Computed example of a mutant assay.
Amino acid sequence: MNFKPDAVAAKREAADFKEAIRIVGSLYEKEGIATSDYAQAMIDAVGEFGPYMVLMPGLAMPHAKSGAGVNRRGCAVVTLSTPVEFGHEKNDPVDVLVSFAAGEKKAHMEMIQSLANALSDAELIEAIRNAETDEELAALFES
Rank of each mutant, 00 (worst) to 15 (best):
H88R: 03
N2F: 12
S81N: 13
T82H: 14
S143C: 07
K105L: 12
Y28C: 08
A64R: 01
A20R: 05
V94C: 03
A118K: 04
E13C: 04
K4Q: 14
H108A: 05
A107I: 10
V54N: 01
D16G: 13
A139S: 14
M56N: 02
I43W: 09
S26I: 07
L119I: 11
Y28I: 08
G58Q: 03
G50W: 04
D121L: 06
E142P: 09
E31K: 15
A39Y: 04
A34H: 01
D121G: 02
D92F: 03
A60T: 04
A39L: 11
I128S: 07
A131I: 03
L27E: 12
R129D: 00
N117K: 13
A138N: 13
F141M: 10
E31S: 08
L59K: 02
K30S: 13
P57E: 04
H108M: 09
M53S: 01
S26A: 14
G58M: 04
V24Q: 02
L124N: 06
D92N: 04
E126Q: 15
N2K: 12
G87C: 04
P93I: 02
K65V: 14
L140G: 05
M42G: 00
L115R: 01
A102I: 05
D95R: 11
F141L: 09
A64L: 10
K90Y: 11
A122N: 13
D121E: 14
L119G: 02
N71I: 11
M1E: 10
Y52H: 10
G25P: 09
F3N: 05
Q113C: 10
F86S: 01
Q113A: 15
L27C: 12
A127T: 06
A9G: 13
G58P: 01
Y52W: 06
G103H: 08
A118S: 12
A9F: 12
A116P: 00
A131N: 02
G47C: 09
L80Q: 00
L59I: 12
P51T: 09
T79R: 01
E135F: 05
A15T: 08
N117M: 11
K105G: 12
A102Q: 03
E85L: 14
R22P: 07
M42W: 07
A139N: 13
L140Q: 08
A101T: 01
V94M: 03
V98A: 08
F17T: 00
A76V: 07
E110G: 03
K18W: 01
A116Y: 03
L27S: 10
A127G: 01
E136F: 07
K90E: 15
L124S: 07
K18A: 14
A122Y: 09
I33Q: 02
G58C: 04
D16F: 11
L137H: 05
G74A: 05
I23W: 11
T35L: 05
I23V: 15
A10E: 08
K18G: 14
H88G: 06
E123I: 06
E13R: 14
A41P: 08
K11A: 11
S114M: 15
R72I: 09
Y28K: 06
E19C: 12
N91T: 07
L27P: 02
P62I: 11
V98D: 00
A60N: 00
V84A: 02
